[in-house]
Every structure is written in C-alpha cells, then in structure tokens.
C-alpha cells in the first residue's frame, strides 16, 4: 500500500479545494492518520473507497473522540535589566488562553479486496457546542450506519446525510451525550456499602456526617 503521504498528495491533486493534513501518532504503534476537512469529507471518502490502487472497501471501525476545551498557561520570561545596575531580573508573565476543543470522528478503513490497511481518517467539528455537524459516511460505507448513530447518541455529532439519525443506545427522550468528558451522570448512589473510592465518596454526599461516637464508658470496678 502507498504511504499516507502519497495518499494525501494524491487526494490534494484530485481535490484542489480540499485540505488534508497528516496527523502523526507519536506512539509505538505509529498508526498515523489523515485529517480530512468536513466540507469535502464525503467525496474524499468516496475516492478512497473507489480508487483502484486503494480500494478501501471496508470501514471497520467508526468512533467518536471528545477533545474538550483546554486552558493553556503560557509563561513568557523576559529579562529586565536592573536600573540600579545590579543583576538583571527575570520577570515571568503568565497569560492564559483557551484552546478550543472539538468532537472528532475516527474511521478505520481496510481493503478486503487487496487485504491491506488500516488507513485511519478523522473528521473534526468546529467546536463542541453549536457547530457539531459532520458529513455522514454511511452512504459510502453501510457499516457506519449504527456506529454513526452511536456517535450521535454518545457524543452529539450530527451526521448530515445519514438516513436515520436517531439515538442508538439511550432512549429517545434522553438529552445528554454521556461519553463526553464533561458529562455528569445522575447521582443515584444513595447507599453503597463499597470500598470503591469514587462510589463511596458520592454515596457519602447523601448523608450528613454522624456525630462522633461517644467513647464507651470505662467499665466499673
């Protein structure tokens, strides 16, 4: 199979308006991926499926990933010369900026005909709140059908072009997207005789702290 760089270059040559970026994977597995832009996602995917050299006819896995907004503290160090003539002082200036998060859909593509793969492609939404639309790849690979419904259910990505976008796992009336990192689940740990730290802590919140037990009286002689 061609390298991802070659695939990217061919995609860019074929679709001049599209942006395709190589996302490197620093891990041991080194499965790098291609970030496609959402506007051209569907046609790029169709090309990957039908290109005779690639024939990625099988989308094995489609899943969502949540990248919340990150607050990053930049530390800027400036050296200020001491007007009195002493050693120059180092002044640290801290500024905070918020790196906007996004929701991401990741697809693992294989070729069953040519028996190669995986080619990992990613699509990212603009933010996590109101611009959460991505093109659906279900018309390209039917296997995304349930998986995109699951992403919609658990992450809240709206797939445009999906023929039946309903919640897959939770009930219809459910409002939240529980796989997001900032989801707070219902507090129903009323009484849990458990040593499990997280569960015990939540269970304790339902009860007032009992008054300290009075020490037993000294046995009378």
């Amino acid at each position: 199979m061609e390298s991802l760089e070659q695939i990217r270059d061919r995609l860019l040559a074929r679709f001049p308006g599209a942006t395709v970026t190589l996302v490197t994977n620093p891990g041991v597995a080194a499965e790098h991926s291609l970030l496609l832009d959402a506007a051209h996602g569907a046609e790029l995917a169709l090309f990957l499926r039908d290109d005779p050299a690639l024939q990625l006819d099988y989308c094995s896995n489609a899943t969502g990933v949540d990248w919340p907004d990150k607050e990053i503290t930049d530390v800027k160090k400036t050296t200020v010369p001491d007007p009195a003539g002493g050693a120059p002082k180092v002044v640290e200036e801290k500024t905070k900026h918020v790196e906007p998060g996004c929701l991401e859909a990741v697809y693992h593509l294989y070729s069953m005909a040519l028996r190669h793969g995986p080619v990992v492609i990613r699509l990212r939404t603009a933010n996590r709140s109101d611009q959460v639309k991505l093109p659906s790849l279900t018309p390209v690979w039917r296997s995304c059908d349930f998986q995109e419904r699951e992403i919609y259910d658990l992450y809240g990505i709206v797939f445009e072009g999906h023929r039946d976008l309903r919640r897959l796992l939770m009930w219809e009336e459910f409002k939240d997207h529980p796989m997001r990192k900032d989801y707070v689940d219902p507090d129903d740990y009323e009484w849990e005789p458990t040593p499990h730290a997280a569960v015990l802590e939540r269970a304790k919140a339902h009860y007032p702290v009992p008054p300290a037990a009075t020490p037993p009286e000294a046995p009378k002689p």
């Binding site: 620093p26 891990g27 041991v28 597995a29 499965e31 094995s60 896995n61 899943t63 990741v106 693992h108």
Partner: peptide, 24 residues
C-alpha cells in the same frame, strides 16, 4: 502507562472482527 499515542488491534473472534481502539 503506555506512551501517548493510539492503536487499533483486532482479532477474529468467533462472531467476527473484534477490535479495540485505544488512545493513550
């Protein structure tokens, strides 16, 4: 603690392709 990165591992389970996708 695995190094930061991601991996997709799959096997032929009796039901079909069972895969695990992990991001560290």
């Amino acid at each position: 603690r695995p190094k930061a990165g991601e991996a997709y591992g799959r096997i032929e389970s009796p039901k079909g392709e069972l895969g695990f996708y992990l991001i560290s």
